[in-house]
């Protein structure tokens, strides 16, 4: 068995090698943020709503990327954590009258705990087996949410309707614009957290486990603890995204969180680039906009067109947008500074 068989998630070098030079990367990042911040001033409310969803999915994918890209564990079931986050937010707002902002840390905490607990049995699973277990979680989630025992809180099949928050302090923003900026700030904070985590000692431990679990253990890394923690943190990110999603969509119901959601997050991760954190944004955009593009071709065959687009993407950029960016950066870098040793 070669290394790839043991760690199926590895397809790229670590994230910290993704950048060419910090300067160029930093400027590009800043430009992206400025564009993101300016966009809602020029767009219609529905488009702003779509962009907000894109950011929300990006947060969820960011969490998934920490798990798969950085720690090398699979998940086809992150939609389940998204659902837990969304329900946490909805229940806290509607049953306990909590302000929407406070539901995010609550959702993050609850999802961290559930992710950590799910991560414990998952410790023994690798690659496709873990994908399978998490896939089971995703398929079973709507049924848990429909349980009649939980109906007083979850509202059963009917779900829960949430009121949309207004912009505070009399800011001259529409509800959609306000939620967009709120989401953008949360997304930036979480990105900052994720990037720092990856660059830290713990981040190196996570990557060491991904690259060679045995060597990591020999270096004194507590594999079991770090792998479960990675699951917990990843679930927390996705749960926060779920809470934001509930607030923005103003509605949660069991059937909005089928395994299709988990699959979409997974696809977003691969399209954005496994192990490349900024790829989350690309993945989020893919989730929100590509189904619409597919519908443009043919409404009835949208699913098939989506599938074909997906297969073509895997052919053309097997390592996702991250791999593509790296290739282009390598190419440009070589052009500017020829190095004989490469």
């Amino acid at each position: 068995m070669d290394a790839r068989d043991e760690n199926p998630a590895i397809s790229e070098p670590p994230a910290d090698r993704a950048g060419i030079r910090f300067g160029a990367l930093g400027w590009t990042g800043l430009a992206v943020v400025v564009v993101l911040a300016a966009l809602p001033l020029f767009l219609a409310n529905f488009t702003i709503f779509q962009l907000t969803m894109m950011l929300i999915y990006a947060i969820a994918i960011l969490g998934l990327n920490l798990l798969t890209g950085i720690n090398g564990q699979f998940s086809l079931g992150h939609g389940a954590f998204y659902a837990i986050g969304a329900y946490t937010a909805a229940i806290l707002m509607e049953n306990f009258g909590l302000a929407y902002g406070w539901t995010l840390p609550a959702a993050g905490l609850i999802c961290f705990v559930s992710g950590f607990l799910f991560g414990l049995p998952a410790l023994r699973l690798e690659g496709i087996y873990l994908a399978l277990a998490t896939f089971g979680l995703a398929v079973a989630m709507p049924q848990f949410l429909k349980l009649s025992v939980l109906e007083p809180w979850t509202g059963g099949v009917q779900g829960i309707v949430i009121t949309k928050p207004d912009a505070p302090f009399g800011l001259p923003l529409s509800q959609d614009q306000w939620l967009y900026y709120f989401t953008l700030v949360v997304a930036l904070l979480l990105y900052w957290f994720a990037a720092n985590l990856v660059a830290s000692r713990s981040g190196r431990a996570l990557m060491a486990i991904r690259d060679n679990p045995l060597a990591a253990r020999a270096m004194g890394v507590n594999n079991a603890l770090y792998k479960s923690l990675a699951f917990g943190i990843s679930a927390a990110f996705t749960g926060i995204a779920g809470a934001l999603g509930a607030i923005v969509v103003q509605f949660v119901a069991p059937d909005s969180f089928t395994f299709a959601l988990s699959v979409a997050l997974f696809v977003g991760l691969v399209v954005g680039g496994v192990g490349w954190l900024p790829g989350a944004l690309v993945g989020g955009a893919f989730i929100v906009f590509i189904p619409n593009v597919a519908e443009l071709f043919n409404k009835a065959l949208a699913g098939a067109v989506y599938g074909v687009i997906l297969i073509l993407l895997i052919y053309l950029m097997p390592t996702g947008a991250g791999g593509l960016v790296r290739k282009v950066a390598d190419f440009v870098g070589r052009r500017m500074k020829p190095r004989p040793d490469r």
Partner: peptide, 25 residues
């Protein structure tokens, strides 16, 4: 995509899933 990482395989499975489901419908 014989030598592609397992993740790519799973994505292609998902794509096939979407294609067959949509075509049948």
């Amino acid at each position: 995509i014989e030598n592609a990482p397992i993740l790519s395989y799973v994505v292609v499975f998902i794509a096939l899933f979407a294609i067959f489901n949509s075509l049948a419908g």
